[in-house]
Computed example of a mutant assay.
Amino acid sequence: MSPSPLTLSDDAIGAVAADPAVARRHLTLIAEATDRLMAADDPRAMIDSLFTLIRDELRLDFYFNYRRDDATTRLEASGGLSRDAWQAAARLDIEETACGLAMRERRSLHLTDIQASRDPRTAFVRSLGIQVYLCIPLFHGSQVLGTLGFGRTAPLPFDEDERRLLALLCHYVSLAKHRLRIEEALREGLETQSRLLAELNHRVRNALQVAIGLVTHQIGTAVDASARAALSRAVERLQVLASAHRPLYATAAPGLVDLPALFREVIAQVRGEAAERAVDAVDRIAVSIERAVGAALLLDALLAHDDDGGAPQIGMRLDRRDGNEMLELSFQGSGWGGRKALIDHDRLVARLCHQLRATPTSEDDGCLILVMPYDGSEYGHRNAADG
């Protein structure tokens, strides 16, 4: 003899409760539950917290939360179960249970007098002593996210107000679960992006080191002094490029380089001197690897025209001008104001300034200022002052 069909009830969300006292209690629960669900960052703890909140009011003894991912369904959270019962619930073939039916039918399922039933789809909840069971499918749009079921050992069917309250809470649970899934996917995407960027930087850095080795070898074999000088400058610039790809300057955001730290390294590398105090940055400044490379090469090119051999004092700050966020670099040192003329006479400096969209000005002979667009916020970066 085939099992008798299970009764399905409509899960439309209506008014929470007709009795004013019950309505006030339910509205209080809804407000508290909404705060918890919207602030949750762990799906299992989120449902545990909800169960704790509503258990006494609704006389609940058990809950089961199954998660659906494509064609796979698994137990994500539960309450009221012993360890053995939890393991049994996790091993269930969900498609052969009342929860599986609720997902297929995309409707809530309210079962009563379960202990008197012989339906195999209620065998597990019956083994727990559950008399009444309400299973509600979780949706986001047309996507089934799983089910959330509540059980009572007392023979008290869920009344209409209780069913409506739980349907409304499950609606908010669905929203919260969808949000958590999106955040999980974003985290996984960022982690993948970070790994790929690290691998790319590693490969670029290795390739540059090979190039540095080859050019250095050519320096040793070059006879002409001018050729050796040109090759030495080429090695220096390759080393600047390699510096920008080092993980030492990585920031919390993938793909961004700590520009003050990179400038200190370039100064130390080119001048062979400590540069901890050579760069003063009021703001936390991070730029894309492309802009970091351009800025480092520009610094190297400017240092190449430093006749007295001393590094300038470099200041970095962010400024908002005409609605745009700009990065201002100031180079203070003897004769540095005159380097503004390099834009017209040095093709490398001119190309790098064009690439960075940097506008040079000089307040006096001892100060060169470069102003350029700041792209940090385009890559998800925010200043320390912004939190």
Rank of each mutant, 00 (worst) to 15 (best):
T97Y: 01
R59W: 05
G79N: 11
D84S: 00
A71R: 03
L109I: 07
T72A: 10
S82A: 02
G80L: 02
I94C: 00
A88E: 12
D113W: 10
R104L: 08
R107T: 06
Y63H: 09
C99Y: 15
N65E: 11
I47C: 10
V144P: 03
M46F: 06
R106N: 08
S108V: 12
R91K: 07
G80Q: 05
R74L: 12
T72F: 12
S49N: 05
I94K: 12
L145I: 11
I136V: 05
P120C: 03
I94T: 02
Q115M: 13
Y133D: 10
R74K: 13
R59Y: 04
L58M: 08
Y133F: 14
M46T: 11
V125E: 09
A85H: 05
E105V: 13
H140I: 09
R126W: 08
C135T: 14
G79W: 10
A77G: 13
T52M: 08
Y133M: 15
E95A: 11
A45M: 11
E76G: 09
I94M: 03
T97Q: 06
A90H: 11
W86M: 07
A85F: 06
D48A: 14
G79L: 03
V125D: 12
N65R: 09
I130C: 06
L81T: 04
L101R: 13
I54A: 09
G129P: 11
D48M: 08
L109W: 12
R67K: 15
C99V: 12
V144N: 08
D69T: 04
G79A: 04
E76V: 10
S78F: 07
R74G: 09
A85G: 08
D61E: 12
R91L: 00
G129R: 07
E105N: 13
S142V: 11
P120V: 04
Q115P: 14
S117R: 12
F139N: 05
A77T: 02
G146M: 10
F64I: 07
D70I: 06
A71S: 08
A71I: 01
A90G: 07
M103H: 02
G100Q: 07
L145D: 13
H140F: 14
G79S: 11
V132L: 00
H110S: 10
F124C: 09
L50A: 02
S142I: 11
E96G: 07
I114S: 00
A88I: 01
S82P: 04
F124D: 00
T112K: 01
D84Y: 00
A88Q: 11
A102W: 06
R67F: 14
P120D: 03
D119N: 15
R126K: 14
R59K: 13
S82F: 02
I94L: 13
G79R: 02
L75I: 09
G129A: 01
S117H: 04
T52H: 08
